[in-house]
Write a protein that binds this DNA or RNA. Structure first.
Lengths: 205, 205
DNA sequence: GGCCACCCGTGACATTTGTCTTCACACACC
DNA sequence: GGTGTGTGAAGACAAATGTCACGGGTGGCC
């Protein structure tokens, strides 16, 4: 019966990747994909309806971030384990995933065979994390940026001017420059652009 | 015999995507994956050795770009059709793919089922292009940036200062600023960062 | 030859950006 | 109560950036 099968929810925005993973996992005898979503906002509602055993979540999604959804999911559906599957292993992503209550963290670089294995291990109560990535996350230290510094930096990603950022965050232009300067200092970079890069790299945004 | 099968070379950097696509295509009766590479530099040598009927190439790859490799492949192994498979459908990418002699252009957003179908159609001599994307490519017009403007912009992507860029491209700082100004003008943006974004968006880099 | 586009460079100028100092308020912690 | 941190803001200053006008050089095209 289906009670023997591991019910999996799959959240991934790239259609081809989502379809490929769904087909592959579907080939496994003990795994059943009960839902596929391509949007972060659909994760929690769909999970509440389908009640999967494992949620396989991408981080960068249209709508809500997979990390946000993960935290929500943990409290609303505690029986469901969360397995984060992401393109690049940013140390800060791993950290935030753990804080959000994720049971595992996989990078898309690895072999596909790992995926089904990880799902089974996660369901068995194990934590699945790439050892090298875990080391990097620990050595990188915690996020040094304050909330406001993050806000201002994220508003600066697309090349917005100080005035643009100030309007978006509802702050004085002078204040925005102060925060930008602080962020540049903390990231040990020379300008916004480098600060944004560094913060992104570390998963601090 | 294997002479009935379509021999496919797969170039894709994300391990999980590569593995998933290889497995899926391998399930098709008439398709055989004869080679998988994760690096742009390996495409042409591997193709010359394995002589595939179709090369399925990602664009953004470590080493050489899939578009560069495509052009090379067309002249060195004319019997091999090229099918570009990319994350995002930038109009300029499509244009360059066509100029490089590609027979098809697929975006990873689409359903997996399209992939095998596209391979068969390409082998039959058809061109496979998303109609909406083709329209966008035509309406976007050709790349307005000169070689030098592209060089300078690409050197500016990571937040480098004028001095950094000048050193990288071996130009005077003053000249660099002139080219940046020209690129900003042509992209109708307000600063480097926006210019880089716009140029990237259009596939002009 | 003239025209045009691209290349490379300079100098001047206004604007933007980044840094620093200083102020005030709130809140938490000891 | 004192100390520290985060938030919000201003002013002054140096450095970086973007714009413009202006040179000179090459090479293709009519």
């Amino acid at each position: 019966m289906s009670s023997e099968q591991i019910k999996v929810l799959l959240a991934e925005d790239q259609g081809m990747m989502r379809g490929a993973l769904a087909l592959l996992l579907g080939l496994e005898d003990d795994i059943e994909i009960v839902a596929q979503v391509g949007n972060g906002d659909e994760i929690v509602p769909t999970a509440l309806e389908k009640r999967p055993d494992v949620a396989l979540l991408d981080i960068e999604l249209p709508g809500r971030s997979g990390l946000d959804a993960a935290a929500d999911l943990r409290s609303r559906l505690p029986g469901c384990r969360v397995l984060i599957l992401t393109t690049f292993g940013r140390p800060g992503y791993l950290r935030r995933a753990m804080e959000a209550g994720a049971s595992g963290f996989l990078v898309k670089d690895g072999p596909v065979e790992d995926l089904a294995a990880a799902i089974r291990r996660v369901l068995a109560g194990e934590r699945v994390i790439d050892p090298a990535l875990a080391a990097a996350a620990l050595s990188a230290g915690p996020n040094p940026l304050t909330q406001r510094e993050r806000d201002v930096l994220t508003a600066a990603v697309d090349g917005a001017t100080v005035a643009d950022i100030a309007a978006r965050v509802h702050l004085s232009p002078a204040t925005v420059r102060n925060y930008l300067s602080a962020a540049i200092g903390k990231t040990q970079t020379r300008n916004r652009m480098e600060a944004v890069r560094a913060a992104r790299q570390n998963g601090w945004l």
